[in-house]
Amino acid sequence: METHKLEDVIAAAPFFRGLDPAFCATIAGCGKHVRFEKGQTVYRQGDPADTFYVVQHGHVALELPGAGRPLVHQTLHDNDILNAAWVVPPYRCHSNARAVDTTVAIAFDAACLRGKCDADHDLGYELMKRFVPIVVERLNRARLQALDVYGPGSAG
């Protein structure tokens, strides 16, 4: 029953838009609903990237712990994907993730999903088609952030 409901939620999520219903059912088997309270840590930098999340509602900050106070470099909101590191070896989380507000999400067991992708390359390809643009988009955003366009010397 729970799996069936999750299937519908997955099919309706923008990230999975257009995904074959059979694939939605397959990946629902690796998913569950989760909730993080305000201030709760979702994962820490260096943790195994054994879960990725589709944020349904909420606000999560990605933080880089440093020598001084941690720096928030990205926040994630409704329909965003949290922890794309699950697709890239060595499958380690790149930042700390902390719920800024109460956040509800679908959590996917990454090892389970990697196994299903290995077993069915069509499913793997469909998922990669969705993850690669996210990774590229985030790389572009990071590039723009690194350019520090509003910094000293910029008229804007």
């Binding site: 900050a61 941690p70 720096l71 928030v72 470099h73 926040t75 909101h77």
Partner: peptide
């Protein structure tokens, strides 16, 4: 970018 005390978007 922001410190952890910022509650808006980053």
């Amino acid at each position: 970018y922001a410190g952890t005390d910022w509650h808006g978007r980053v």
